[in-house]
């Protein structure tokens, strides 16, 4: 017992001794922003990466102090949001629809704290909801696919079969038909549960099967499973279209373009507004008009889509102007 207590005491002493020598954290008067990412984490090369990029940019340019937390599971959103609020962070960002419940619960308990949530609607006087017009961008890349397809067969591969991805699918299909009324759209989903986002093997399998049926260009909205779609495109010398972030460089020459969902811009904007004292609660939608939704052009696909660029920009203007009504799964299905 004697020796045991010695060990205990030594461990504690060592810990506390080190504490005393610790430099005192500097009190800063910078704007503090807390960022709670979804389960994918900041390195998912897509959605969460975008949010992190936007927040980092804000930190660099606006001189705010950023703290980021990755959540291991659903039960950790709530304490993470709460911890930020308790520490007096004036703005807390929740990324992903999985955090809707947590924000609904925590936001009313901290009325002085501002929350922003991406992809899910929370109605509360201190919550700003950031939505994206995914259907608009999908329509645009669908139009491109319709123009590019020589076989008049295009494919769509979704990740998990949920309303959000149906929204992509519906916009994409409308775009394809607008460009080429005779074109067919082949649709597959990777799965019905959350593993559908992280199954590139299955993504590739579905893509190969679509290509075998004559499809020559596929748009994916399948998270990491989409990486398999790019592999299949390279293997079959066919085309694919990326999603969320710029994925043109993943298989240069085989990726026609990427539909960009600029979570980074949305996040940056919210932080900027907060910094300027202009935080506005309520739902805000980012779309083609404010570049929240876009399609990617870079050195990897410049030449490839050059012949279609003029037409695409024309379509984009028409959508922004409201001349083209893109069907929205959300409003059609009366969801959210």
């Amino acid at each position: 017992m004697n020796k045991l207590s010695k060990i205990v005491i030594l461990t504690l002493l060592w810990s506390t001794a080190c504490t005393k020598s610790a430099p005192q954290a500097q009190e800063s008067h910078k704007l503090k922003v807390g960022l709670v990412l979804d389960k994918g984490g900041k390195d998912d090369k897509s959605f969460n990466s975008g949010a992190f990029r936007g927040a980092t940019k804000a930190a660099d340019e606006l001189g705010i102090e950023l703290k980021m937390v990755e959540s291991p599971d659903d039960a950790a959103f709530e304490p993470a949001l709460r911890s930020f609020a308790e520490r007096g962070y004036p703005l807390v960002l929740a990324i992903g629809f999985a955090q809707v419940d947590a924000v609904k619960k925590v936001a009313p308990q901290f009325p002085a704290t501002h929350f922003a949530i991406v992809d899910g609607v929370v109605e509360s006087p201190n919550v700003s909801t950031l939505m994206f017009a995914e259907h608009e961008g999908s329509y645009l890349v669908g139009y491109l696919a319709g123009l590019m397809s020589k076989s008049a067969k295009v494919g769509f591969i979704g990740g998990m079969d949920i309303a959000l991805i149906r929204r992509f699918e519906m916009g994409f299909g409308a775009g394809v038909k607008a460009a080429n009324p005779k074109a067919e759209v082949d649709v597959n989903y990777v799965g019905v549960n959350s593993t559908a986002w992280v199954n590139p093997g299955r993504g590739k399998e579905l893509a190969l099967s679509q290509y075998s049926r004559g499809v020559d260009i596929i748009f994916h909205a399948a998270g990491a499973s989409g990486l398999g779609v790019f592999d299949a495109a390279a293997e079959r010398q066919a085309y694919a279209i990326g999603v969320d972030s710029n994925q043109n460089g993943l298989k240069p020459g085989r990726v026609a373009t990427s539909m960009l969902k600029r979570v980074d811009i949305a996040v940056y904007d919210v932080i900027k507004e907060q910094a300027a004292g202009k935080f506005t609660p309520g739902t805000r939608s980012f779309g083609l008009k404010d570049n929240g939704i876009d399609y990617a052009v870079d050195e990897n696909n410049e030449k490839l889509i050059a012949p279609y660029k003029v037409k695409l920009d024309e379509i984009r203007k028409k959508i922004i102007a409201g001349e083209i009504k893109v069907p929205d799964f959300y409003t059609l299905k009366k969801m959210n």
Partner: peptide, 25 residues
Amino acid sequence: TIVSLFIGLALSLTLATILGENPGH
């Protein structure tokens, strides 16, 4: 068991120290 506990904790804090954190903190 208790000794194991402290060994586990001490090793982890050492790891944190190597990563540049203050173990006491």
